[in-house]
């Protein structure tokens, strides 16, 4: 939270809605530790990261949906599958990412 705090507070002060994505579990080797966060503002700004840049694009899409619906969701990313064009992690790790609205309910 600390690494995204300044941006989150700035967005909040402007009255923008914010979604937070957090790495809640990792299996095998993962680029970012449990607790790493990516924050997304309503206007599409980003702060922080949940991987080495491998899945941020996909998490961003989900975060925008969470901002629209207000409903949190749990995402899982595994090994990149080149043939299926799936979003994944080339390092062979797996991560679970929870995406939720900040200041929900």
């Amino acid at each position: 939270m600390k690494e995204i705090l300044a941006d989150v507070e700035r967005w909040r002060e402007k009255g923008e809605k914010v979604a937070i994505a957090t790495v809640v579990a990792t299996r095998r080797s993962a680029p970012r530790p449990v607790g790493a966060k990516l924050a997304v503002s309503e206007s599409g700004e980003l702060a922080g990261s949940v991987s080495g840049g491998c899945v941020e694009g996909d998490v961003f899409e989900h975060a925008c949906e969470v901002l629209r619906s207000g409903q949190p969701k749990l995402l899982s990313y595994g090994i990149e599958d080149e043939e299926a064009w799936n979003v994944g992690l080339p390092c062979g790790g797996e991560i679970d990412v929870f995406v939720e609205p900040l200041d929900g309910e």
């Binding site: 939270m1 600390k2 705090l5 507070e9 939720e100 900040l102 200041d103 929900g104 309910e105």
Partner: peptide
């Protein structure tokens, strides 16, 4: 998370 929790968390971090 509710605004109450966010506000208290920010205060705790500070």
């Amino acid at each position: 998370m509710s605004r109450v929790v966010t506000d208290r968390l920010l205060k705790a971090i500070e």
